[in-house]
Amino acid sequence: IIRAEMGQHVGTALARILADELEADWDKVRIVHVDTDPKWGLMVTGGSWSVWQTFPVFSQAGAAGRIALIEAGATLLGTSAANCTARGGAVHAG
């Protein structure tokens, strides 16, 4: 999480965006906040900026990750990605 955490649980909100798109098992999600190195850019938050500014990027990244995981899972299961879904942190066929 590359946003400042000031007690409003922005890390939880941002992680949830990714987890929901990935169809991850929320019980297995771990949140890691980065240090304040300038390489991460401006690390402020206020007025829910972190969520509304990051939502589109994280949502698209999570969806792309879900698609990639479904495709890999389909290959392992010997079926097509069209026959698979992701839910609960796993790829299911049929």
Rank of each mutant, 00 (worst) to 15 (best):
L18N: 03
I2T: 13
V44F: 06
T85P: 02
T36Y: 11
L18K: 05
I17H: 06
P38M: 05
G41C: 02
L22C: 13
A90H: 14
I1R: 02
Q53D: 01
I17R: 02
Q53L: 02
D25N: 15
V91S: 05
E23R: 15
G73P: 00
G78I: 08
E23Y: 12
H92G: 01
Q53S: 02
S50V: 00
K28E: 15
I2D: 10
H33Y: 15
G46N: 13
D27F: 12
L69P: 03
V34H: 14
T54C: 03
A24K: 08
S59T: 01
P38D: 08
T85N: 03
M6S: 10
L18Q: 04
A81V: 03
D37A: 15
D37V: 04
G65K: 05
T12S: 12
I2M: 13
A63V: 00
E23M: 09
D25M: 13
S48T: 10
G65D: 06
S48F: 05
L77D: 04
A15Q: 08
G89H: 13
H92W: 14
H9L: 10
V32H: 11
A13D: 00
A82Y: 08
L22F: 11
V34M: 12
D20G: 07
A81Y: 09
T12L: 14
P38A: 06
R16Q: 14
V34P: 01
I67P: 04
D25F: 13
V51L: 13
A24F: 11
G46Q: 10
A4N: 10
P38L: 02
T45V: 09
N83Q: 12
T45E: 15
Q60C: 06
V51G: 05
T12F: 12
I67T: 07
Q8P: 06
L18H: 04
N83A: 13
C84V: 06
I1G: 07
R16D: 07
F55K: 04
L77S: 01
G62T: 00
A82P: 00
I2W: 00
L76Y: 03
L69A: 15
M6Q: 13
I17Q: 04
L22N: 09
H92R: 06
V32I: 15
L14S: 01
T75A: 13
G89Q: 11
A81M: 04
L69E: 02
Q8I: 12
L22R: 09
D37R: 15
A64C: 01
R66M: 05
A81G: 03
D25V: 12
P56R: 02
G89W: 07
L14P: 02
G78T: 08
A4V: 08
S80V: 01
G88A: 11
G11M: 11
G89Y: 07
S59L: 02
W26T: 11
G89D: 07
V57S: 03
A72F: 01
M43A: 12
S59M: 01
R30K: 15
T36N: 14
G94I: 04
T36F: 13
L22M: 15
P56T: 05
L42K: 00
T36E: 15
C84H: 05
A24H: 05
A63Q: 04
I17L: 11
A68N: 03
R87S: 11
R16A: 14
D35W: 09
V91N: 04
A63D: 04
S48R: 03
W49G: 00
G78C: 11
I70R: 06
D20I: 03
H33V: 14
I67H: 00
G7W: 10
